[in-house]
Amino acid sequence: MPTRAIPYLKTVVHLACLVPAVYLLQVYRSGSLALMADPVNYITHFTGDWALWLLLGDLAITPVRRLNNSLSWLIRFRRMVGLYAFFYATLHLLTYVLLFSGYDVPTALAGLQAGHLLEPWKQLKIIWPTMVGDVEKRRFIQVGLLAWLILLSLAVTSPQRVLRAMGGKNWQRLHRLIYVAGFAAVVHYMWLVKTGVRTPYKYAVVFWVLILARVAYSLWKRWNKPSAATPVSAKVAS
C-alpha cells in the first residue's frame, strides 16, 4: 500500500464507519422507525451491535496485519476504528439514558423550545434514581459501563499530543485496556440476554480467537527467535 493512498483510504474508512449512523438517521426520518413495534429496542440493539462489531473489528486489525508484512499499513486505521467503536458505544449509552430509562424527551424538548434551558436537566434528575439503581443492582449494566469508561479514557488519550505527553510506555499500558473493554462488552451482551439465546456466544468465540491469535503469535516469536530483545509489536504499536 503506497503511503500516498492512506489519506484517501482514511476518508473511505471514515465514510464506511458513518454509514450505520446515517442509516439510523434515515430510518428515523423516513418514519419507518416509528412504525417498528418497539423503536427504542431497535435503536438500543442497533447502536450496541455496531459498537461491539467495530470493537471486535478493531481488535482484529493487529492479528490480520501480522499475517503478512504487506498488510502492515492496516495499523494506521486502528485508532480510527477504535474511536468509532467509542462513538457507537456512546450512542448506545445515550439511548439508555434518554430513551430507555424513562427520560421524558418530548417534555425536555418542549421546555427547551419554550426557553426553559434547565428543563432537560430537570428531566434527567427525575430518572436519575432509576439509573443509579440499575448501576447498583445489575451486573450487565456494570460491565457495560466499565467498557464505555475504558473506551472513554482511550478516546480522551488518543491524540498524538497526549501520547507524547504521557510517554509511549504509559500510553501503551493504558491502551492495552482495550482488551478489557472487548471482554466487558461481550460479557455485557451475554449477561443481558435470556437463557437460551446464543448470539452473544458467537462474539465470545470471535473475541477469544483474536486473543489466542496474539498469544500464538508471541509464542511463535519466542520459539523462532529466542534471543529477540524487543518484540516487534512494541515497536510498531508505539
Partner: peptide, 15 residues
Amino acid sequence: TQAHERLLNSNSVFP
C-alpha cells in the same frame, strides 16, 4: 426494573 414499562401503543419513536 419491573416498576415501569414501555407502552407500545402509538406510532411514535419516543417511548
